[in-house]
């Protein structure tokens, strides 16, 4: 493993919605490097292009311009836009995870919790029921879901449990890079705190690289090493999390930081 190279190298990345005559840039001119084990938060107001950027990085949306280079587990560096669909799927199955804001988007709501956590394992070729189930049970325990709920479907779970289940489903194959889109915003405050605590523990323990999109600066401060502030599709400020939040340079960032309501 060569840790002297970044996991993700993003250069001039942009995605435009619509056809060529009437296109609208969702995000543009984004540059950054993500290193193994690093957590980077993308913050900004609604409509600033955070989710578009996440989509473009994770190949859910195509890149209209620029490039995203990814270093595979075997050390080779690939340009994501040049990968075949099958290769991208393989990445999703083995090296990447995606935690959606709404757990219903990332889970099969009518398949049992064990089936949900076991599916990625079976997709990469696990064919032993006992082992799949044992791995699923272990992960439920790690995300603090009682193991006796393993045969219950997520429709019977609370919001916080669903989100934890989605995290377990993403982490069970030991990914190297996880994308998170507002993972805590649908939850009430006390559940958010527990989830953040859990996420922080898992990220540190597994050495995950994470790109987390959030509008909640507290989430960014708690989880991330670095922060990118977006406005109108562009990155306007970037730096170490504490530095950006304690000493914001851009007027917009200052506004964002000062808009937090004190409890």
């Amino acid at each position: 493993m060569n840790d002297a190279q970044p996991l993700l190298e993003v250069r001039g990345a942009g995605h435009a919605y619509g056809d060529h005559s009437a296109s609208r840039w969702g995000c543009r001119d984004v540059d950054f490097d993500l290193w193994p084990g690093e957590v980077i938060a993308v913050v900004g107001e609604s409509g600033s292009g955070k989710t578009t950027l996440l989509g473009a990085l994770s190949q859910r949306l195509s890149l209209t311009e620029g490039s995203v280079r990814y270093r595979l587990a075997d050390g080779t560096v690939v340009d994501l836009a040049e990968l075949s669909e099958a290769a991208v799927r393989r990445l999703w199955r083995t090296e990447w995870g995606f935690v959606h804001q709404d757990p219903a988007d990332g889970l099969r709501m009518h398949v049992s919790a064990g089936g949900n956590v076991g599916e990625p394992l079976m997709a990469i070729g696990w064919r032993h029921y006992g082992r799949v189930r044992a791995a699923a049970a272990e992960w439920l325990e790690r995300v603090e879901i009682p193991v006796d709920r393993i045969d219950d479907a997520p429709v019977t779970f609370s919001g916080g449990m669903r989100q934890r289940l989605q995290i377990a489903r993403n982490l069970v194959v030991s990914p190297r890079l996880v994308f998170m889109d507002e993972p805590t915003s649908g939850l009430d405050v006390s559940v958010q705190a527990r989830l953040l605590d859990l996420l922080r523990g898992l990220v540190a323990e597994l050495g995950l690289a994470v790109v987390i999109v959030t509008h909640d600066l507290a989430v960014a401060r708690l989880l991330s090493h670095r922060i990118m502030v977006m406005k109108e599709g562009r990155v306007i400020e970037t730096g170490l999390t504490d530095q950006v939040l304690d000493d914001p340079r851009e007027p917009y960032t200052q506004l964002l930081v000062s808009s937090i309501l004190p409890a």
Partner: peptide, 13 residues
């Protein structure tokens, strides 16, 4: 992998 989810669910249930 999806097809095995169906079989998994059968065995679990």
């Amino acid at each position: 992998g999806l097809m095995y989810v169906k079989l998994y669910e059968d065995i679990a249930r």
